[in-house]
Amino acid sequence: MIIEKIAESKFNDSVFNSTVFGKEFTDHMLIAHYKDGKWDEPKIVPYGPISMTPAAMSFHYGQTIFEGMKAYKNDNEEVFIFRPEKNFERFNLSAARLNMPQIPKEIFIDGLEAIIDLDRQWVPKDYGTSLYIRPVMFATEEAVSARASNEFIFAILLAYAPNYYDKPLSVKIADYYSRSAQGGVGFAKCGGNYAGSFFPTSEAQKDGYDQVIWTDSIEHKYIEEAGTMNVMVRIGNKILTAPTSERILNGVTRDSVLTLAKDSGYEVEVRPVEVQELYDAYKSGELKEVFGCGTAVVITQYDAVGFGEERAQLPTLAEEDSFALQLKKKLKDIQYGLAEDPYGWRIKIEEQA
């Protein structure tokens, strides 16, 4: 791996005062090019713009995929990442679905470790803050021909992630727009999935909601995801969530939360969850919690759910009564090295000489 270090670091402690997610980029980025059926040697270079033709095929045909990960630092200045193998596997699943080349492990995993080690001073220590990691691949061949590109760039970007304000959000259940369809790309982490969600979300915001709970594209009968996250509901003392499928992203946080929930003694059911079941539970007082889970926020609670014209206000629960808050703390404590990690999820970034 070729490493070209920045002449003078941009880093100073004021970076950690930022309250904006994904804007404070670190000193370096990793870049690898795919051409003539193979990847070249990856380079870590100073972060900056990439020159591209407006005819690059990613701009026209949407061959773009990415992942979202985080790095954490403990009081001993040790840096860790969380379950990188899962992101590596999912990245290549996304690549296969969009007819893009597989990225080798020595570029993805070794590249992650090398660039995070190089920019480790950018990893904050405060609980709730982190260094966000964005692996991305996009088509670069110069052509306006409706086919798969033959040339690609793989990159890894790093940016400071401030602590999220834990204000509960409100969500409206979609009864017309859909995030994905059977046989589509819902399980892939590709740019189009997100672009297509922005307009329905803005419509929900006009109705006084923050995000959308997506439902199946045929009957709008079953809940699937919430915003850009997997969604879970608590009815009584049972946690329910939809199974992953061609329409639903197999979230790393989702998998981690389900594992912790089961090992903590909570009753968990992974099965289709009907909108009507949620509504009936709300009416009977059994709908205790609805929450989303994903890399950026870990777990976020919802305080209201929109069923058509009806706004269902959910109870406000203290941490000792909230499954969502208890699971969030358990997961974050593992990520930040404050609790034992019996699962081997936390991977230390070794310092290179």
Results as ranks from 00 to 15, higher is better:
Ile44Ala: 14
Thr64Ile: 00
Pro49Glu: 00
Phe66Pro: 04
Glu41Thr: 14
Lys38Ile: 09
Ser58Arg: 05
Ala55His: 06
Tyr61Trp: 14
Trp39Phe: 10
Gly62Val: 10
Lys38Gln: 14
Met52Thr: 04
Gly37Pro: 00
Trp39His: 08
Ile50Gln: 11
Glu41Tyr: 04
Phe66Arg: 08
Gly68Ala: 11
Thr64Val: 03
Gly62Ala: 15
His60Phe: 07
Pro49Phe: 01
Thr64Ala: 06
Ile44Glu: 08
Pro54Met: 06
Glu41Arg: 10
His60Thr: 06
Val45Gly: 06
Pro54Ala: 12
Pro46Ser: 12
Ser58Leu: 03
Val45Ile: 15
Phe59Tyr: 11
Pro54Lys: 10
Lys38Met: 12
His60Val: 01
Met57Glu: 11
Val45Glu: 05
Tyr61Leu: 13
Ser51Leu: 06
Ser51Thr: 10
Ser51Cys: 03
His60Gln: 07
Phe66Cys: 10
Met69Phe: 08
Gln63Val: 10
Phe59Ala: 04
Ser58Val: 02
Lys43Ser: 14
Pro49Lys: 05
Met57His: 13
Ile65His: 15
His60Glu: 02
Gly48Ile: 01
Pro49Met: 00
Lys43Asn: 11
Pro54His: 09
Phe66Lys: 09
Lys38Ala: 15
Ser58Asp: 02
Phe59Glu: 00
Asp40Tyr: 09
Ile65Gly: 15
Ser51Glu: 04
Phe66Tyr: 12
His60Gly: 05
Trp39Asn: 06
Asp40Met: 07
Phe59Pro: 01
Glu67Asp: 11
Thr53Ile: 00
Ile44Asp: 07
Val45Ala: 09
Ile50Lys: 13
Trp39Pro: 03
Gly48Arg: 02
Ser51Asn: 09
Trp39Met: 02
Met69Lys: 10
Ser51Phe: 09
Trp39Ala: 08
Phe59Met: 04
Ile44Val: 14
Gly68Asn: 07
Lys38Cys: 13
Gln63Ile: 11
Ser51Met: 06
Ala55Gly: 06
Phe66Thr: 09
Tyr61Ser: 14
Glu67Val: 12
Phe66Met: 05
Tyr61Ala: 14
Ser58Cys: 12
Gln63Arg: 14
Ile50Val: 15
Tyr47Ser: 08
Ser51Gln: 07
Ser51Tyr: 07
Pro46Lys: 14
Met52Cys: 01
Ile50Ala: 10
Glu67Met: 10
Gly48Gln: 01
Glu41Trp: 02
Thr53Gln: 03
Met69Arg: 10
Lys38Ser: 15
Phe66Asn: 04
Gly68Val: 05
Pro49Cys: 03
Lys43Cys: 07
Lys43Met: 11
Pro49Val: 00
Ala56Val: 00
Met69Leu: 14
Gln63Lys: 14
Asp40Gln: 12
Trp39Gln: 05
Lys38Tyr: 12
Ser58Asn: 03
Gly48Thr: 04
Ile50Phe: 14
Phe66Ala: 11
Ile50Tyr: 13
Ile65Ala: 15
Phe59Ser: 02
Gly62Phe: 14
Ile65Met: 15
Met57Lys: 15
Met69Ser: 12
Gly62Asp: 08
Gln63Trp: 12
Ile65Phe: 15
Asp40Ile: 04
Glu67His: 14
Asp40Trp: 07
His60Ser: 08
Ser58Gln: 02
Met57Ile: 06
Met57Ser: 15
Tyr47Leu: 05
Lys38Pro: 02
Ser51Lys: 10
Ala55Arg: 04
Ala56Asn: 02
Lys38Glu: 13
Gly68Asp: 05
Gly68Phe: 08
Pro42Thr: 04
